[in-house]
Amino acid sequence: MQELIERAKSLLEAGQVARVLGWKKGENVWDAEPAFFESADALDAFVYNGFCGANLSKYMIEAGKLEGKTLVFLKPCDSYSFNQLLREHRVDREKAYIIGVGCKGKLAISKIPFDGILNVSGADYPAAAEMLKVETLYGDVEIAYKEAMLERCHVCKGKEHVVYDELLGESCDTVDADRFAEVERIEAMSPEEKFAFFQQELSKCIRCNACRNVCPACSCRKCVFDSTAFDSAQKANTTSFEEKMFHIIRAFHVAGRCTDCGECSRVCPQGIPLHLFNRKFIKDINALYGEYQAGSDLETKAPLTCFTTDDAEPGVGRG
């Protein structure tokens, strides 16, 4: 972590960048917040540990409007989001200085199933421990680092950054699950079971819009759900709307552009596995139009916005 701070300080002091976008120490080890640092002194509050799961690429849309370059720290998976935003002309590559930072899997405090957590040790970077020591009001306990990891890290896209100016720090393999296993499990259900599964999950939705607002693919200046002309603008109207429409529409709007960064599932206060929608689309796109990973590069034609004579006929498998 010190290495990152030193590098950021020297780039700031040399005037190569005007500000640094990273994570700032919170009250506890697990609540670091995304933050802009404008001076070397401010960087003393910089932190990078296992709990820095927040994907900073979306903040670069705003940062790109500011004077001068912004140094941004991107984890391997975050770099896919940045690339996708670049492709959509939502961020300015010239205004970004990207340090690809290593990642050993990201944790979420909500994945640590103990009451009264006072401190978690072993989440440091680069010295992440295999077992996290958790100090709680009700005694000390331990949990494997892997068990406290975000879902997305179990199906990590890999250790490589797809866009960067320089790299700092090591990453490690965290994959121990199949990316599409859960989607396949649902596909195998009967229509009644499928419907019951999604209804139960989506009935928890409180329509807070956290999934939309955190999503790097949701970068429209004016969202369709914010339109006053739309009957279900932004807030709750009827609970059935959440279950049936909002999430389907959202998933469809980001289909083919979603890099599967997993932020939607990370932030959902109700723990709805929203990535299951996005991943279904990704799986179908792979099957119907050939393997495609959004954000992996700037050249490959996106399957949903280009036509080839090999494209699947509409209505395949239905009607």
Partner: peptide, 15 residues
């Protein structure tokens, strides 16, 4: 369309 139909199927909407 293909994707939409597949999604409807995934959500348990009747064929």
């Amino acid at each position: 369309m293909t994707l939409l139909f597949s999604m409807l199927d995934y959500l348990g909407v009747e064929d």
